[in-house]
């Protein structure tokens, strides 16, 4: 009888213990899953970064030569007396077009190079609220024209952090610009900052079109874009995540199609390599 009671007590406790353990395991599994995803993402970025910066570098030199030759040709056309005025004009137009297209290519190669820039961040003590506000002011005029309202919720006690200010500015401006494009017309962008003892959090949330589940996994991939050809290089967000990773932080996205998106940046207060 007593043995039975003891046994049932043990088994009850054992059951509780097993439930506790399995919950713990599930939690660790989930965390591992997130970490694995981040690892794959950062490895993928590193590989593509290396490849693309190599290509960008190699293409820049021939581009520079083509540009120079086009300039020389334009110059020659100006100084020679061509009989046929109409052909002369057509030649000039076509050379100018070459120059325009070279500029476009150079824009892409520069973005690629900045994406994979090897130099280490320069760390300065930074007031993140002020940094974000500067970028908010920069987009506000354009936002007003589209009836988009920026709503700030800056934590007044946000600590200064050690980070690379121009790199962080680039990310904030990119995310604000994306938020504006996702809204198109009439909507709100919420900019929030908060912190805990080791990290600060920046959230940029819009009431725009949101991201479909299918696209959510791909938005940080280089060259992934939902914009029509020529309207976006698809490098914006991949540059953002590469920068934030370099600064010791991470970006998470919460989004549902038709219900807007929330981009959440975590950054360490004390930066270490």
């Amino acid at each position: 009888m007593i043995i039975n009671v003891i046994l049932s007590l043990i088994s009850a406790n054992l059951l509780i213990f097993i439930i506790f353990l399995s919950k713990k395991i599930q939690k660790i599994k989930n965390e591992k899953c997130v970490l694995d995803q981040q690892l794959v993402q950062s490895q993928k970025l590193a590989a593509i970064g290396q490849l693309s910066s190599g290509i960008a570098h190699e293409i820049n030199n021939p581009l520079a030569i083509i540009n120079q030759e086009a300039e020389i040709s334009l110059h020659l056309l100006d100084s020679t007396n061509l009989k046929f005025e109409e052909q002369n004009k057509e030649l000039k137009d076509s050379l100018s077009q070459i120059k325009i297209q070279i500029k476009r290519c150079r824009e892409i190669t520069h973005r690629l190079l900045s994406f994979a820039r090897k130099n280490d961040p320069i760390i300065q003590q930074t007031d993140v609220n002020a940094l974000i506000e500067d970028m908010a002011l920069l987009v506000e005029k354009e936002a007003k024209l589209k009836s988009i309202v920026l709503i700030r919720k800056y934590s007044p006690e946000l600590p200064l952090i050690n980070t690379d200010p121009p790199l962080l500015r680039q990310v904030i401006l990119n995310l604000l610009n994306n938020a504006m494009q996702a809204i198109e017309k009439e909507g709100e962008i919420f900019i929030t900052t908060s912190f805990n003892p080791s990290k600060i959090e920046i959230s940029i949330k819009d009431t725009g079109s949101g991201i479909s589940k299918r696209n959510l996994d791909k938005i940080f991939d280089p060259f992934f874009t939902t914009k029509p050809p020529g309207k976006g290089t698809g490098l914006g967000l991949s540059i953002c995540i590469a920068i934030i990773n370099k600064l010791g932080g991470n970006i998470n996205v919460e989004s549902k199609e038709g219900q807007g998106s929330n981009f959440i940046i975590n950054l360490p207060i004390f930066y270490t390599f």
Binding site: H110, L138, V139, K141, E142, L173, N177
Partner: peptide, 13 residues
Amino acid sequence: GSVESGLQGMIHG
């Protein structure tokens, strides 16, 4: 305050 030129400026350093 053009956003596009702002982005270009930041990308070019």
